[in-house]
């Protein structure tokens, strides 16, 4: 029990005194997870819409692939990105391995199938008559896609939350492609793992609290947007 209480008091001290390491790691986490979630959204939203709305041979197979992709283990995503970006790998010349950019790529790889699959499911769940009605009202392709996205906005926010949740909590891929370099690629999850391995439970707990607080704030914001959309 002493270990826990010591850890909690250390966590409190680090947070209240504004430990620069903790705040630096937190800021880096916000930037990397935010960027990877936005990239995943930029890819997953149109791909999910396409999978749901465009009929083509192999459509079902691709939907199944996207669904299967939601369970992509972060270490596998990390391994793929690491092989591609490794100095002797096909994209090694870019010099991205062990950089925040590599972490963004790996995390986007994890979140994209999640956002794609939920987007496709959300759009497919809309009543078929709604698609016909929107086209019947004279919508062009752009207006049609905008209204369909708007109609599916509540589950689409769930897609964003799920994608964000997956990247903010993963550690395997970040460790593999980021290297957990102090001041460069260390994020809340990799830092917590490192601190536990060193027996610094106070610091690890502080990082855990910050991570939880970060998740709660983002989820709260997205929920507020969702509820506002629902009321509208």
């Amino acid at each position: 029990m002493d270990l826990i209480f010591d850890g909690l008091s250390e966590a409190w001290r680090l947070l209240v005194t504004g430990d620069s390491d903790v705040y630096g790691i937190t800021f880096r986490t916000v930037v990397i997870t935010g960027a990877s979630t936005l990239i995943a959204l930029a890819i997953g939203l149109p791909v999910g819409l396409g999978l749901a709305l465009v009929r083509f041979p192999g459509q079902r197979g691709l939907v199944a692939l996207a669904n299967a992709g939601t369970g992509t283990p972060p270490v596998v995503a990390g391994l793929v990105v690491a092989i591609l970006l490794w100095r002797s790998g096909p994209l090694g010349g870019l010099g991205l391995i062990y950089t925040p950019a590599a972490m963004v790529i790996a995390q986007a790889l994890i979140a994209t199938p999640i956002i794609t699959a939920i987007t496709a499911a959300a759009v497919m769940a809309l009543p078929p008559t709604l698609h016909l009605q929107i086209r019947a009202m004279g919508a062009n392709q752009r207006q049609y896609l905008w209204l369909i996205t708007r109609e599916a906005r509540l589950p689409l926010l769930v897609a964003v939350m799920a994608g964000f949740g997956a990247v903010v909590s993963e550690v395997g891929a970040s460790m593999m492609v980021g290297g957990n370099l102090s001041g460069e690629t260390r994020v809340l999850t990799t830092a917590a793992v490192l601190e536990v391995s060193k027996g610094n439970f106070g610091t690890a707990l502080a990082l855990g609290f910050v991570l939880l607080a970060f998740i709660v704030v983002i989820a709260g914001l997205l929920t507020a947007v969702q509820q506002r959309a629902r009321r509208q």
Partner: peptide, 8 residues
């Protein structure tokens, strides 16, 4: 249509 399909 039979279903009024009103938007949200």
């Amino acid at each position: 249509f039979q279903d009024p399909a009103l938007l949200d």
